[in-house]
Amino acid sequence: MAEAEQRELTYVDAIIEGARTILLEQDNAFIAGEDVGGAGGVFGSYRGLLDEFGPERVVDTPISEEGIVGLGVGAAATGLRPVIDIMFMDFMGECMDEIANQMAKMRYMFGGSAKLPVTVVTMSGGGRNLAAQHSQSLEAWLCHLPGLKVVAPSTPYDAKGLLIAASRDDNPVFTVMNKMSLANRGAVPEESYEVPIGKANVVREGEDLTIITYSRMVSESLSAADALARDGVEAEVIDLRSLQPMDMDTVIESVAKTHRAVVVHEAVRFGGLGGEIASQIQELAFDELDAPVSRVGAPFSPVPFSAVLEQAYLPNADKIVAESRSLIGA
């Protein structure tokens, strides 16, 4: 299909369409979370679903994150396929036991007799002046827990496709959406489709360095690559899409070509996934590297409120350009 004929949706409408597809295709699927029904989700990401599917399948819950995640664990273990909404991923602090000690481990602890096909949808990221408790990017917490899968869609296409893939997976999958991306538009097919979990996407080809990133930082990295190209530096940009499992094959293949790598994420740099990725690159492709792997991430600080401070805090295209130039000695 030609580009011009492709239908465009916003990221948030792509989430709605993904969620609707899940409810249409899977009788055992339901959505539960705070304000997902009557309010259609505080981000609008479940708009219209209560009317279409009714309160048995689009379940408004009390503000009780531990109870909500426990509901998902118990329902999944007993044969349903819950989609659980945790409005802001910052709220994981309220339900981390059910995530870390129950959901992630039940199958293993039970010697393989349990199956936990639960999808968790949550929102990450700053940029909306929501300050320290509604702006974090805490995906590294999740990726550190064996038993969980974690995906982070950067586009409307991926938001729908990864959400559907998550719901069909027999494991707990966190789909970490981004709240600054909600109004972004992109091509989204009307039919049901999956974006496979565990496969990265090379979104820009280049010869001079590899930028490895995910979620909202994909668009910032593409802007950075455009700026670098004006100076004759061609960056390859990899959208990881899936953070656990992580497609290191695609990363290594690219680094073998470019010999330089910078990892970019919005999360705090210290202890973020960038450290893991950099470490794996040097383990797997040390001989390919012409320079140490570098990282762009947020500084070691809570997310600030004031717009000036928040913009100083967040990684962006300019910071990625600066790091990339330093990396290639330009």
Binding site: N28, F30, E56, E66, G67, V69, G70, L71, G72, V73, G74, A75, A76, A77, T78, G79, L80, P82, D97, E98, N101, Q102
Partner: peptide, 16 residues
């Protein structure tokens, strides 16, 4: 940790 999981199991039996 058990009570929320039991709520999920009960949700399941009611859903079915």
């Amino acid at each position: 940790a058990g009570p929320p999981i039991a709520v999920g199991a009960a949700f399941s039996t009611k859903y079915r």
